[in-house]
Design a binder for these strands. Structure first.
Lengths: 151, 151
DNA sequence: GTAAAACCTCTAGTTAACTAGAGGTCAATA
DNA sequence: TATTGACCTCTAGTTAACTAGAGGTTTTAC
């Protein structure tokens, strides 16, 4: 709901950048990917409702979890439109992401155990070595979550 | 040591590709990055000693561990020149990589615990939220190992 | 009222790890 | 011998997540 009062409270890109710790260009970029939205003033400059800060915060946390922007965008799209994510929304998203994180940790742990089992063996055979054809653990990157690791 | 006998045993790119499961173009690419080397025949075509198979195997395993090619190249360069990696070499490298994998797992575990601690809190404050300013856990990507996660 | 700071769009560059294709050569087979 | 398949080099494109800069407009502050 836009009242004269909260219109006054809108933020410029520069302000959002300063408060969120994200570069102005990055905010442009997020907008181009549909992760955030902006209103424009008379002179075509972006004006953000304050809620954008929360949205950006959520984006940054998700990135630290290793979730690619595209997926974060998907998740945000599933939230009621154009509203800041609430604590309840956050709960839903973070529970999901926690599961994926668990899965990722399991995969890495299994891989490490195999590696340790293979130290010194030196086989590396395509057919026999568990490190080489552990396709069951870390398969091709198909549909689903893709973990690129935190930057 | 090149004898008429093992000259005969040299492999073409296509053969290496087939046996290693890596595309021909990727082998070209590895060569351009100094990860593997080839001899050329009269017609300028690549001819590989059989040891290249072991080298490629090692590259693929390291990649599954999430180690970037540049670092794999560094590691290979530290091995005696132009020789296939032996079981002892593999032991050295894999022990090192195992440590890095441990570290990575620890980072992710800590992150997951923080995430779980934060589910429902919904704060996401720049100053207060442990998820947001856990710079101690996963910092900028500086010098050292860079983990991009397995593909 | 003017000058500087902030903003706008758009293109191009960055890294990683390749792939795809053009245009041409070489090798193996019938 | 001719043809096909494998090979050669080189350029350009791919994805992700941005950054840098050019060239131009708007806002703000003095």
């Amino acid at each position: 709901m836009i009242t004269p009062e909260n219109l006054h409270k809108e933020l410029t890109v520069g302000q959002v950048a300063a408060r969120s710790g994200v570069a102005v260009t990055a905010l442009h970029f997020y907008e181009s990917r549909g992760l955030i939205k902006s209103n424009r003033n008379q002179g075509n400059q972006r004006r953000y409702p304050r809620e954008v800060l929360r949205r950006v915060a959520l984006i940054k946390v998700a990135q630290r979890l290793g979730i690619p922007l595209a997926e974060i965008g998907e998740a945000l799209k599933r939230l009621p439109d154009n509203r800041a994510p609430t604590a309840a929304d956050w709960k839903t998203l973070s529970a999901q992401w926690s599961l994926e994180l668990d899965e990722r940790i399991n995969q890495l742990t299994l891989l490490r155990d195999r590696l340790n089992g293979c130290i010194g063996c030196g086989c590396l055979s395509m057919e026999a070595c568990p490190l080489r054809n552990a396709g069951d653990v870390l398969g091709e990157r198909g549909p689903g979550a893709h973990w690129l690791g935190p930057t």
